[in-house]
Each structure stands twice: as structure tokens, then as C-alpha cells.
Simulated assay, not measured.
Amino acid sequence: MPAPGKVGFGSAVGIAGALILCVWAFASPAQNPVEPSPSVSEAPASYSAPIELIHDKPYISVMVNGRGPFRFLIDTGTGGQALVSPELADELALPVAGHARLMDPSGVGEQRSDILRVHSLKIAGVEFADIKAIRHRLYGEEDICKGVLGFTLFKDYLFTLDYPGRRLVLTSGVIDPNGGSVLTFRMPDGVPIVPLHIDGQHVEAQVDSGGTGLSLPDSVAARLKFLSTPVEFGRGESLATRFQIKAARLRPDVRLGHYAFKQAFVEINPAFPLVNLGSTPMQHFMVTFDQERMLMRLYSNQKTLHLDASPTPLELNNEPRREASDRKLVPIG
């Protein structure tokens, strides 16, 4: 999501994205350390299932320990295997296997959460076994889904989010470079980071399907020209701070591989160091990730693209919070 924790986008509306698990620390006293990678059962070469787009973000049906299905958010901006809501964790009586530290990209906020042991997650016909999931409130998502599937869960597959076709595809093999644009990425915290070019400047962007729009840090926005002066668009919260979000349309193109966004609508935040590429700009693409070779392939049938403001759940405008939260520990998404 637009950076870890929870970010409110739109007219003072709080929309959750997923949170990025920047630091994992396992502490399980009377047992062996928890392994970070799931095992994957034998499977045919290719699996596919429909995804549901809600406020542009992708959701999928998941069986958890043979029960469900439950709706989960697919979030490439979460650098772990999975998150589960406290409600689902309690319903399924998921056992605690250790503890994790969650840290937002600002490097300031930090929160400690339980690691839960999940026997199996079944997604698109693939069964992932022995999963370590973080127990965490899904701020702004409680009424939409029961959990989050993180990027590294799919490390053993070519992992495709086909936004136009509304499908998740898991397959073996290598990325086909024909007809698209192939970018290298790095993933220091389990989240893919790719190069973008704006007005001749090279910047790095987190690819965050759990987020919504294209969000720029102040340090990048200060070097760019806009069609009009950025104005207040919303407010956000990280694990450590609250901040104002501004928005405007860029004058120069944003270039992502072979593709260009013309006069893109962007959000501007003072809290995080990297550009965040959410699901609204990704709507144009079939996006495939190869974590073994650190490659991402984008395919769209158009080379010049348009990016408007992210959709917002306006019905939440006046909805009160269900319970008070520690101001320092509100995830932003």
C-alpha cells in the first residue's frame, strides 16, 4: 500500500492499504526459530483464478486451513507471506509461533505483532503449506477482507496480476519479453522496487498493489513542475506520525519502462522516502513478477496512459472509528 500503515486518500477519507513488513524479528522461546519461507506442494505448471477489484485493489478468495473461502487482499507492498485479521485468527484458533517487528519506510515507526502458524493457504488451486502470518488489524479493510497475501508468498512462481482480465495467474518458467516492457527490480525488504523516470530524473518506486494511486515524496515533488499548485487532498498516518497529503497533476510525463503516463494525477507526502506505485496506475497492465531473476514484465495495449485520482469509498466519510488507536501505532496503507 502506499507505504506501511494506513494512509487516508481523498476528502479526509481513510482508505487502508496493506502494510509493508520492513523488519522481521522472530522470537519463539521454547522452540526452533521460525523459517521465513513457505513450502509449496506439487502443482501443475499453471494456475489461474479471478480477482475482484475494489477501489482498484485486487482481492481473491482463499481457503485457510481448509476453511473458507475468505477474501484476502493481494499486496505486493507487504514484504512478508501474509497478514490475518485478529477476528480470523481467533475464529480459526491460529497458534502463535513467534513475534515480528513491523517498521515503516520512514525508519521511525515500529510495532510488535504475533506471528501465527497457518497450516495451509489454498489460492487459485495452489496449496501453500506452513505459512507464517502476522496477526494485525487491517485498518480500513475490516469490512472488505480477512487478510493480506504478501509478495514473498509467491516467490516460487511467475506471479501475474492481470488487471484488465481480472485474474491472478501462477505459473512456472521464465518471463516472455515479447510485446511488453521488462524491468529489473530489487527487494531489500521483500517489496519490489523499480525505476521510474520523470522529466529526465531517475527515481525508485515501490510496486504496491495494496496501495491506490501514484504517491511522491516531498523530496521528489520539489524538483518537478505541476500544471497547478498542489492542494490538500487528505491526511495520512504512519506508525510514527500524522501528515498532510497534497495532490496535483504533473506537467512532465511519468515513464515506466516503455510506457508513459501523460500529466498524471499524483499524491505528495512528507513521510516516506520512495515513490509508491499503487493499483490505480497498474490498472492498465498485465504485471508479471519473477522473484528468482528479479524481473517484472508490464504489458498494456496502449503506450500512452492516463492517470486520474484514485477511487475513494465516499460512504466512509462520516463513519466513526470503531475503537481508539494508539496514535503512534496506526498502520498506513
Rank of each mutant, 00 (worst) to 15 (best):
125 G>C: 10
166 R>C: 14
221 A>N: 15
204 E>C: 04
162 D>F: 05
155 K>E: 01
174 V>R: 09
103 M>H: 08
174 V>Y: 03
171 T>D: 10
123 I>F: 02
131 I>K: 00
218 D>S: 13
174 V>W: 05
142 E>G: 09
145 C>Y: 07
152 T>H: 00
193 I>N: 09
130 D>R: 02
104 D>P: 11
184 T>N: 15
219 S>Q: 13
202 H>M: 04
212 T>S: 13
185 F>M: 02
150 G>M: 06
190 G>P: 04
160 T>N: 01
98 G>S: 05
143 D>L: 06
187 M>P: 04
131 I>L: 01
197 H>Y: 14
155 K>S: 01
132 K>R: 15
97 A>Q: 01
152 T>C: 02
192 P>I: 02
191 V>D: 04
116 L>W: 03
171 T>F: 10
189 D>K: 12
111 Q>A: 11
218 D>P: 06
174 V>I: 07
228 S>Q: 14
157 Y>P: 04
137 R>D: 13
142 E>S: 15
214 L>K: 06
154 F>T: 01
173 G>C: 01
131 I>A: 03
122 K>D: 12
157 Y>Q: 02
114 D>M: 08
212 T>C: 05
122 K>S: 14
164 P>C: 10
223 R>L: 15
143 D>N: 07
217 P>D: 08
208 D>F: 05
182 V>H: 06
207 V>I: 14
182 V>T: 14
210 G>V: 06
184 T>L: 08
209 S>F: 08
153 L>Q: 01
147 G>N: 11
223 R>M: 12
201 Q>Y: 12
107 G>V: 07
176 D>A: 04
130 D>I: 01
105 P>Y: 11
189 D>M: 06
170 L>P: 04
166 R>S: 13
219 S>D: 12
178 N>L: 14
126 V>D: 00
197 H>W: 11
133 A>K: 00
166 R>N: 13
170 L>H: 03
191 V>A: 08
173 G>W: 00
147 G>P: 15
214 L>S: 04
224 L>I: 09
223 R>H: 14
210 G>P: 11
162 D>T: 09
118 V>S: 00
126 V>F: 03
203 V>D: 12
176 D>S: 06
183 L>Q: 03
153 L>P: 01
95 P>H: 08
141 E>P: 06
107 G>C: 09
109 G>V: 05
108 V>S: 06
227 L>M: 10
152 T>I: 12
179 G>H: 06
199 D>M: 10
153 L>M: 03
180 G>M: 09
161 L>F: 07
140 G>I: 10
201 Q>K: 14
137 R>V: 14
153 L>W: 00
169 V>A: 08
146 K>Q: 13
199 D>P: 09
129 A>F: 08
123 I>L: 05
150 G>T: 03
163 Y>K: 09
148 V>I: 14
95 P>W: 05
172 S>L: 03
182 V>D: 04
132 K>D: 11
103 M>D: 13
146 K>E: 15
142 E>A: 09
211 G>C: 11
140 G>F: 08
184 T>Q: 12
161 L>W: 11
100 A>V: 02
173 G>A: 01
214 L>M: 11
158 L>E: 05
177 P>A: 14
183 L>A: 03
150 G>Y: 02
165 G>P: 11
171 T>L: 05
226 F>W: 05
100 A>M: 02
186 R>D: 11
118 V>Y: 00
126 V>N: 02
137 R>P: 07
194 V>M: 10
172 S>T: 01
186 R>S: 05
221 A>K: 13
140 G>H: 11
156 D>Q: 15
